[in-house]
Design a protein around this nucleic acid. Structure first.
Lengths: 224, 224
DNA sequence: CGGTAGTTTGAATTTCATCAAAATTTGTGG
DNA sequence: CCACAAATTTTGATGAAATTCAAACTACCG
């Protein structure tokens, strides 16, 4: 998961405080487009609730998922340098996003917003690096285990249960994101279920044995 | 390759101009440690010449390469948020690095250095995203082709020949970075040689047929 | 020139993708 | 609230791709 992190020092709330004119959150239906690749973008968006996926399209229209973002994340940061979005971004469920005009972050250094933004971006780089390690790992089992643990951590950091949460994305998206076939992801889920590591009721996931899950995950990204 | 990019608006030279006291570049021998994971870091480093690899270590001492950085890159950006390096960083050859104190970037917004740093970080995110796509692609051949093209682009952006350059890293490191076995990387190199796409004399690489190489690369990351 | 590190090549094995079909879940209209 | 259709997930069988193991070969360094 790229940047499923609490943006320390630049929480959505703090950022919103900068630009009062755009503090109101907008509601997006499920599968709504937040922005498109190449689109001129002069804002970033804080996710107040819900979740989104970011992806690119190749010439034959196939998706490649590059990131999932959940509550508390800020999206569109990649567009600051060029002024244009580098990926498509679509809600995975009904979501509330708060638009933050870049001008408000750039023009004046109110309340140290520059430093906060720099820290947020730096933090995002660390998270990307960690996610990179998860993906590069050769075993599909490790990839899926690490993916679930990262989601779980994010939930915990946002005051939710790390043991029980909803997976907003389809298996297809997970598979695509992890560079695996959907069948492989499915098989690993059933394997973990049989081994009593997780259970799932519809899209609710329960981590029964965190330790075992951790043992199956990528050894480089140990936080616990 | 994470961030093999010209940091537009924050070239090493520009950044150095901020903090005159630390403008002098230091020479690092090959295989020298620039910083270690967990080490307190209050500077970033601009690569004036040479190259480095960043990696993590797991409990059994195995490396996982997370990035290569070449001339023109700035390293240590991931440490800004936490104040501590998140990876080890080692030179791949004799290199010259220029230390840039973070204080000089943070304290005052001289010459819009804040905005420049923000742009640089944002740009890095885009590059990571692109590299992510290269890695997630399922075919080993695509991974290696994309890797070579990305290196080539970086060389061009730094005024060097995009068709002929030195690979500073070992096959082992490339394989590790791409999540492949070293034998697989080797086999793909020989395949590309047999097909007249590349040649290599020792560590010098020559791209003979850029178009073919591009056809073999990941379809999502097309710049050309 | 000899020894070590690094690379290449071949053969056997494992892992994962693909294809096909069944089972389950989700969404919709009555 | 239920029934039906569509979408998604699961499961099994097969094949392709990449890893592993082993050994030979080459470059590099004192």
């Amino acid at each position: 998961m790229q940047s499923v992190c609490v943006p320390a020092g630049l929480t959505p709330d703090k950022v919103e405080a900068i630009d009062l004119s755009s503090r109101k959150a907008q509601v997006f239906n499920s599968k709504a487009t937040v922005f498109e690749a190449g689109q001129k973008l002069s804002s970033v968006y804080a996710i107040k609730s819900g979740s989104v996926k970011c992806f690119t399209l190749n010439e034959s229209g196939q998706q490649q998922v590059t990131a999932f973002h959940l509550v508390g994340d800020i999206i569109g940061l990649e567009a600051i340098a060029t002024g244009a979005a580098s990926t498509y971004c679509e809600t995975l469920e009904t979501s509330m996003l708060c638009e933050i005009k870049l001008g408000s972050l750039f023009d004046q250094n109110i309340d140290g917003v520059h430093q906060n933004l720099i820290r947020l971006l730096s933090q995002r780089l660390s998270h990307n690096s960690r996610q990179y390690i998860n993906i590069v790992s050769t075993s599909a089992e490790q990839k899926v285990a690490s993916f679930l643990l990262l989601l779980s951590e994010h939930m915990q950091q946002h005051g939710r249960s790390p043991a029980e949460f909803k997976l907003p994305m389809k298996r297809t998206d997970i598979a695509n994101y992890m560079g695996l076939a959907i069948e492989t992801v499915s098989r690993i889920f059933t394997l973990f279920k049989k081994q009593g590591i997780i259970t799932s009721d519809q899209s609710m996931l329960t981590i029964l044995d965190r330790k075992k899950l951790h043992n199956r995950s990528v050894p480089f990204t140990t936080t616990e």
